[in-house]
Design a protein around this nucleic acid. Structure first.
Length: 498
RNA sequence: CGGGGUGUAGCGCAGUCUGGCUAGCGCAUCUGCUUUGGGAGCAGAGGGUCGUAGGUUCGAAUCCUAUCACCCCGACCA
């Protein structure tokens, strides 16, 4: 016995960040690697978190005029060949289905049989298959706009995978819209970016930078890609969501055209936008600490866990009864427009062990109830964002619960925002830039004047830094690109990234 | 996909160089007793065709060949 560790997660963030990340996922029981290369199994606690994200986002999509639908998992290979730039971006990393039958093989195994006339691609994204349907559905300007979202799984044959951040198969939503005018499609692109930013900041408690991607970081085939970018606790950036203005590139390739009010035949303007289970990774790396997962209350699968403490059957009976009543009362409390989510953990485990189990899983509030609390009609309350627990009366606890949860939600956002602020700089020379992103330097977010150029690409590659985006809403400012000296009026944010 | 590394019990590892007792240890699991407002103590038990397939040998976790998977570094990352 080496004594009680100081932290529940080992190594700590400071010791080995990537390993810490893996250990948090394991300790919180969010997911596991599966027998299938590059694919993960999302476990109940992790999936419940994803379901909460889905629920909120789905409501937001519907509130902005979108409808859900479902398109096929398989895409004919010829569809992917339609848009030239799209081909460049996706061709290499797709799973391809070439047969439609299995037959007994020579060694008692199975061999694929029945070759397909045209190979099918497992969707890496659905622009092409959805576009093909839109081409049928759109004849007149009266058919527009079409605003559809789908919740689906997609496959991108990634070589280096990390749970939630990059897996070969992942869950996401993809919105696909078609519009009569460029302006309308642009508005849609920006509106959905706002939805994502709203979700990230107000539900995930994760501050984000909204901005436009540089040409090099754009979605293949898009005219413009905008993104939300956030800072993880190791100072690396993570792209948390993207929204694409596709112009008429896809509609021309797929013949999505209509007659406008003047009888003119015109190609539609399309957009697409998505967020994925990567958000779970973002959530982990934004808030969690050396004792495990920390969840923002608005997305936590459980807000409150009640831990009964007793020594014998007699105590057990009265404590459990008290806990059940407490749980019922807690469910009557309203937080964020819903009943507070509460569970009782009555497993036959030692108190300390049980407590740490829920600390590691990030449950916002722990309520410990023993015989003394039953006597006093009290509770012993621990908050995930504070090290110490404290006693209070039952009524006081119930009355304060919504405030405490709201306070925790805000507290997480404030702490993350402050962290990003502290690790953000404005740099005006290449020397400063090189120093800031030197191998042994911590790095962070650097706002710099820039211009799209081979010089920039080369410097960035050397320093393992990427242009994250060009934040929206900057005051125009006269400056010079730090790489080329070209005049520049806006800054881009640079960082090492996931 | 290139370079390097690792596959031995659910998890983490020793043993491999130099082939040879019955393949071990820690944690976890199960049982009993003790403990009980805090990640328990003692005693006992279960669990392994040593990644897989060939080969060398009287004998292979150990040597050879192939293959698969995972990790790290690069390339890539919509």
């Amino acid at each position: 016995m080496s004594g009680k560790p100081k932290t529940a997660i080992s190594p700590t963030r400071g010791e080995d960040y990537p390993e810490w990340y893996q250990q948090v996922i394991k300790a919180a029981d969010l997911a596991e690697v599966s027998p299938v290369r590059g694919c993960m199994v999302i476990k109940p606690w992790g999936y419940a978190l994803w379901e909460n994200m889905q629920r909120v986002l789905d409501r937001m999509f519907k509130d902005t005029g979108h409808q859900n639908a479902y398109f096929p998992l398989f895409i004919p290979m010829s569809f992917l060949e339609q848009e030239a730039k799209h081909v460049d971006g996706f061709a290499k990393e797709c799973a391809v289905v070439t047969h439609h039958r299995l037959e007994p093989g020579p060694d008692g195994g199975l061999v694929p049989a029945g070759p397909l006339e045209e190979p099918l691609i497992v969707r890496p994204t659905s622009e092409t298959i959805i576009g093909a349907m839109y081409a049928k559905w759109v004849q007149s300007y009266r058919d527009l706009p079409i605003k559809i979202n789908q919740w689906a799984n997609v496959v991108r044959w990634e070589l280096r995978t990390r749970l939630f951040l990059r897996t070969a198969e992942f869950l996401w939503q993809e919105g696909h819209t078609a519009h009569a005018t460029s302006e309308e499609a642009w508005d849609e692109t920006r509106l959905m970016l706002d939805v994502y930013a709203d979700f990230a900041e107000n539900y995930m408690a994760m501050p984000v930078l909204k901005g436009e991607k540089t040409a090099g970081e754009r979605f293949p085939g898009a005219v413009s890609t905008v993104s939300i970018e956030s800072m993880m606790q190791d100072l690396k950036a993570l792209q948390a969501g993207t929204s694409h203005f596709l112009g008429q590139n896809f509609s021309k390739a797929q013949d999505i055209k209509f007659q406008d009010q003047h009888g003119q035949e015109v190609h539609a303007w399309t957009t697409s936008w998505g967020v994925s289970t990567r958000l779970v990774g973002a959530l982990i790396m934004t808030h969690s600490d050396d004792d495990g997962l920390v969840l923002p209350p608005r997305l936590a699968p459980s807000h409150v866990v009640i831990l009964p403490i007793y020594r014998n059957d007699e105590e057990r009976a009265s404590v459990i009864e008290y806990c059940q009543k407490l749980a019922a009362r807690t469910r009557e409390v309203n937080y964020d427009g819903q009943a507070v989510r509460v569970e009782i953990d009555d497993r036959d485990l030692r108190g300390g062990e049980k407590k740490w189990y829920h600390v590691k899983r990030g449950v916002p509030i722990r309520v410990e109830v023993g015989p003394r609390d039953v006597q006093a009609d009290g509770v012993f309350v621990g908050r995930r964002d504070q090290p110490k627990s404290a006693g209070s009366s039952r009524e006081e606890f119930l009355a304060n619960l919504p405030t405490i949860l709201a306070e925790m939600q805000q507290g997480l956002f404030d702490r993350a925002a402050e962290f990003r602020e502290k690790n953000t700089v404005r740099l005006d020379t290449l020397d400063e830039f090189k120093q800031y992103f030197a191998e042994d330097a911590p790095g962070g977010f650097a706002w710099c004047h820039w211009s799209e150029s081979p010089e920039m690409e080369q410097q960035l590659k050397q320093l393992k830094v990427t242009a994250r985006n060009i934040p929206i809403g900057q005051e125009p400012e006269d400056g010079k690109c730090i790489f080329t000296g070209q005049p520049s009026s806006t800054r881009a944010v640079f960082a090492r990234a996931y």
